[in-house]
């Protein structure tokens, strides 16, 4: 809506008042759009069956105040949730994903500096600044290959079977 008004005003200015220069501050409805490119973090939540956790609740805690939620939201149909951490607060950001008593906590280390915001006013040159924060993709919980997992399960089962054999051996 605001964008539409701005366009209308721009047209008015262009058509009716081509010769009159008005200071932009005189326009009470003047709109300033700003943007900045920052680094966003995308969480993908799935059950260990591979099924995405859709509509799961996400709570983000900032490093400076780990007891109060900094942001809350829900994952989309694919179990994804994207948020932009405040790069002035470097440290470990904690993301909790939870659905029906199931969930996990992901700790994301963010070492960043304040991103210089790039802003545009109508017609001005665009400045794009990228936040130099660095985050390596990571996952919570054990992530083994199918072979490793199979071997682990096999070892545990064989341990149980071995225990059973040991206690079932014939008494002398």
């Amino acid at each position: 809506m605001i964008i539409m008004i701005r366009t209308l005003l721009a047209r008015l200015v262009a058509l009716a008042l081509p010769a009159v220069l008005l200071p932009s501050a005189a326009w009470a409805h003047g709109v300033k759009l700003e943007y900045q490119v920052t680094q966003a973090i995308q969480i993908t939540a799935a059950y260990d069956t591979g099924e995405p956790m859709d509509n799961a609740q996400v709570v983000v805690f900032s490093p400076t105040d780990p007891s109060q939620p900094w942001l809350t939201g829900t994952t989309d149909q694919q179990g994804r949730f994207t948020f932009t951490p405040d790069s002035t607060q470097p440290g470990t950001w904690e993301v909790q994903v939870r659905q029906a008593g199931h969930g996990d906590i992901l700790a994301i280390p963010i070492e960043g500096e304040a991103a210089t915001p790039g802003s545009t006013t109508s017609g001005a040159a665009d400045t794009v600044t990228e936040a130099p924060a660095t985050v390596a993709p990571a996952a919570s919980g054990p992530s083994y290959t199918a072979l490793q997992q199979g071997l682990l399960v096999g070892s545990v089962v064989w341990g149980c079977v071995g225990t059973a054999f040991f206690f079932a051996r014939p008494k002398k």
């Binding site: 509509n55 709570v59 109060q68 939620p69 829900t74």
Partner: peptide, 9 residues
């Protein structure tokens, strides 16, 4: 836990 939408959960 605090910060969750209790009804949804």
């Amino acid at each position: 836990p605090a910060g969750l939408d209790a009804n949804l959960e």
